[in-house]
């Protein structure tokens, strides 16, 4: 069963040229996939469409079996809550502690601190940030920030995890260790799509690769 389906999706910014053309893509539930392509190929745009931060100019995107084209604004958060997102630039909130950053998805759902405190602490322990529970992002290293961002993305057990260049700001050794984290999450049933142009990573981790070239996708 597919969790993500693109049908003839096209995207252009303003009156510019179409950067994604007649895109057809299906991701199976529980799969682990890479999305690759040269810089500027449209990987980030595709990811943004997947977490509903961007609407396609044409075509149809289906998430969790639901057509997102006619999705009402009020329903968008419901879909986003089923998706975890990791960014290359981490996007942690500087004024919140590591604990508060990781707990954010639960907090915006209206959950009480007492209900999620242990979950968050346990996850911080799992990603090796338990000793940084009360630290602010400014004092974390790049790798620690990325692990905090990953923890934030998975704290609510999303069905789909999207990671845009998650290893772009960390050294190769740490990149591999982060990939192991993603693989473990995938083993728990989360569908994973990682956008990367790191060929070393693609060679090391054996997983289906979607290549984005000239605005179109091909499977490798």
């Amino acid at each position: 069963m597919s969790i993500v389906r693109f049908e003839n999706v096209g995207l252009r910014y303003g009156n510019g040229p179409e950067i994604l053309k007649d895109l057809n893509l299906t991701l199976e539930t529980g799969s682990f996939n890479f999305l690759t392509g040269a810089s500027g190929a449209g990987k980030t745009s595709l990811m943004r469409m997947l977490f509903l931060a961007l609407k396609p100019t044409r075509g149809m995107i289906s998430l969790f079996g639901e057509n997102t084209n006619g999705l009402r604004r009020g329903k968008v958060p419901d879909v986003r809550r089923r998706i975890g997102v990791v960014f290359q630039e981490f996007r942690l909130l500087d004024h919140l502690t590591t604990f508060e950053n990781v707990a954010l998805p639960l907090r915006v759902r209206g959950n009480k601190l007492n209900d999620y405190r242990d979950n968050v602490l346990e996850l911080l322990d799992w990603v090796g940030l338990d000793h940084h529970t009360n630290a602010y992002p400014a004092v974390l290293s790049g790798g620690e920030k990325q692990r905090a961002a990953i923890a934030r993305a998975v704290i609510s057990s999303p069905e789909l995890l999207l990671a845009d260049e998650p290893t772009g700001n960390v050294d190769p050794a740490l990149a591999l260790r982060l990939m192991r984290l993603f693989q473990q999450l995938n083993q728990f049933g989360t569908t994973v799509l990682i956008a990367t142009h790191d060929t070393h990573l693609l060679d090391t981790i054996k997983a289906p690769v979607v290549r984005l070239e000239d605005g179109k996708t091909t499977w490798q």
């Binding site: 809550r81 089923r82 639960l106 759902r109 209206g110 959950n111 209900d115 999620y116 979950n119 968050v120 346990e122 996850l123 799992w126 923890a151 998975v154 704290i155 609510s156 057990s157 728990f188």
Partner: peptide, 8 residues
């Protein structure tokens, strides 16, 4: 979805 969902 489980409102109190956390990581496994």
């Amino acid at each position: 979805m489980n409102k109190n969902a956390g990581a496994e």
